[in-house]
Amino acid sequence: MEFVEPIRDKKKIEAMKKVLKGSNMRDYCLFVLGINSGLRISDILNLRIDDVVDVNRKLKERIIIKEKKTGKPKDFPINESTGKAIREYLDTRLDYQMDEPLFISRKKGAPLQRTTAWTILNQAAEMVGIKENIGTHTLRKTFGYHMYKKTKDVAKLQEIFNHSAPSITLRYIGISRDEQDEAYLNFNL
Results as ranks from 00 to 15, higher is better:
residue 61 E to L: 07
residue 150 K to P: 02
residue 165 A to S: 15
residue 160 I to C: 06
residue 74 K to V: 04
residue 69 K to D: 03
residue 35 I to V: 15
residue 1 M to N: 12
residue 171 R to A: 14
residue 180 Q to V: 14
residue 25 M to S: 15
residue 122 N to V: 00
residue 51 D to V: 05
residue 9 D to P: 12
residue 133 N to R: 13
residue 56 N to W: 12
residue 140 R to I: 02
residue 138 T to S: 15
residue 154 V to N: 01
residue 118 W to L: 13
residue 177 R to C: 04
residue 118 W to A: 08
residue 179 E to C: 08
residue 88 E to L: 12
residue 187 F to N: 14
residue 160 I to P: 07
residue 176 S to F: 05
residue 136 T to I: 03
residue 115 T to W: 11
residue 82 T to P: 02
residue 54 D to V: 02
residue 90 L to C: 04
residue 183 A to I: 14
residue 49 I to R: 14
residue 108 K to P: 06
residue 100 E to I: 09
residue 23 S to C: 07
residue 95 D to K: 13
residue 67 E to K: 08
residue 170 L to T: 03
residue 82 T to E: 06
residue 56 N to E: 12
residue 59 L to H: 03
residue 29 C to E: 02
residue 172 Y to F: 14
residue 178 D to C: 09
residue 40 R to I: 03
residue 166 P to I: 02
residue 82 T to R: 01
residue 4 V to A: 10
residue 145 Y to E: 00
residue 37 S to C: 10
residue 30 L to P: 04
residue 157 L to D: 01
residue 174 G to I: 07
residue 109 G to L: 10
residue 124 A to H: 09
residue 114 R to N: 13
residue 101 P to H: 10
residue 143 F to W: 07
residue 95 D to P: 00
residue 45 L to S: 03
residue 31 F to P: 03
residue 138 T to D: 05
residue 54 D to L: 05
residue 14 E to R: 15
residue 65 I to S: 08
residue 34 G to A: 14
residue 111 P to A: 05
residue 25 M to I: 09
residue 49 I to L: 09
residue 48 R to L: 05
residue 13 I to C: 12
residue 16 M to F: 02
residue 55 V to Y: 13
residue 20 L to A: 05
residue 64 I to W: 03
residue 25 M to G: 08
residue 149 K to D: 02
residue 137 H to E: 09
residue 111 P to V: 01
residue 12 K to T: 13
residue 182 E to C: 00
residue 118 W to M: 06
residue 94 L to Q: 10
residue 54 D to K: 02
residue 82 T to D: 00
residue 153 D to M: 06
residue 157 L to V: 04
residue 49 I to Q: 04
residue 103 F to N: 04
residue 4 V to K: 02
residue 153 D to S: 04
residue 138 T to M: 06
